[in-house]
Simulated scan of single mutants.
Amino acid sequence: MQRAVDEGLLIARFAVVMDVKNHIIVSALRHDEPFDADATGREVRQSLVRLAAEQSDYADRVTDVLRERAARARGSVKHEHDYHPEDLASLDLRHAVYSRVATELKRLSDDDGYVGEIVETARQDAWGELGGAVESRLDRLPKPPVRNADYERNRTRRIRTLIDVDLAALKKQMDDI
């Protein structure tokens, strides 16, 4: 059971980091807001409490709905969510896992160190994603012309041609109008 609780907590942590990272990016790009560690910490705490409530609701659903339905079920199993009396032990285990994950998430929402780690991870992920987007964009920009020794050596001749030929032709066109 502890492994399932640990995995549930890892998934919840990942979800909170992703949610907060996206909030940081949107705040920076759309609202031109600077990063605020305190505000981000409050958001992390709210996300953890929200996830704890979801896990608690799942635990209640297992107890209230699924366990009751399983105890009354008869006949053959029709699909993967068709629980029968032989599934009661598994449902009790699910209830215990959901309850422990909910309790732990609620406890972690009050843990300044844990919240701070999530804030920093989300901040680093956000800036990494933004930096990657900028790098990708810069990689697509046209490359500047290559300047070599021939370019510098022939520059005077090219400017003279521009003045004597191209600008002279443009002046003639303007005079004819």
Score class of each variant (00 low, 15 high):
residue 53 A to M: 10
residue 94 R to N: 14
residue 89 A to T: 10
residue 69 R to P: 00
residue 20 V to D: 11
residue 54 E to I: 05
residue 88 L to Q: 10
residue 128 G to L: 11
residue 167 L to I: 14
residue 40 T to A: 04
residue 143 K to F: 08
residue 111 D to N: 12
residue 40 T to E: 01
residue 19 D to L: 11
residue 165 V to D: 15
residue 3 R to N: 02
residue 110 D to W: 02
residue 61 R to Y: 08
residue 22 N to H: 15
residue 115 V to D: 07
residue 105 L to E: 13
residue 150 D to A: 15
residue 90 S to E: 13
residue 164 D to C: 07
residue 149 A to Q: 11
residue 5 V to R: 02
residue 60 D to W: 09
residue 128 G to I: 11
residue 52 A to M: 03
residue 80 E to D: 08
residue 19 D to C: 01
residue 45 R to V: 02
residue 156 T to I: 11
residue 142 P to T: 11
residue 72 R to Y: 06
residue 137 R to H: 09
residue 50 R to A: 14
residue 159 I to N: 07
residue 65 V to G: 00
residue 74 R to M: 07
residue 17 V to T: 13
residue 54 E to T: 09
residue 122 A to G: 04
residue 157 R to E: 15
residue 118 I to A: 03
residue 44 V to T: 10
residue 45 R to N: 01
residue 115 V to K: 06
residue 141 L to F: 15
residue 5 V to S: 05
residue 123 R to K: 05
residue 74 R to G: 03
residue 106 K to F: 09
residue 164 D to V: 10
residue 177 I to T: 11
residue 52 A to D: 03
residue 119 V to D: 14
residue 18 M to P: 00
residue 106 K to L: 08
residue 151 Y to P: 00
residue 116 G to A: 07
residue 100 R to Y: 09
residue 107 R to D: 03
residue 9 L to S: 06
residue 141 L to A: 12
residue 163 I to M: 11
residue 56 S to V: 00
residue 114 Y to F: 05
residue 102 A to S: 12
residue 26 V to L: 13
residue 88 L to K: 01
residue 155 R to T: 07
residue 164 D to M: 13
residue 129 E to A: 14
residue 42 R to Y: 05
residue 148 N to I: 11
residue 68 E to M: 06
residue 10 L to P: 00
residue 172 K to N: 13
residue 92 D to H: 04
residue 134 V to R: 05
residue 158 R to A: 10
residue 161 T to Y: 14
residue 169 A to Y: 10
residue 25 I to L: 06
residue 130 L to S: 01
residue 170 L to V: 10
residue 99 S to F: 03
residue 109 S to V: 09
residue 41 G to W: 07
residue 107 R to E: 09
residue 1 M to E: 04
residue 32 D to S: 11
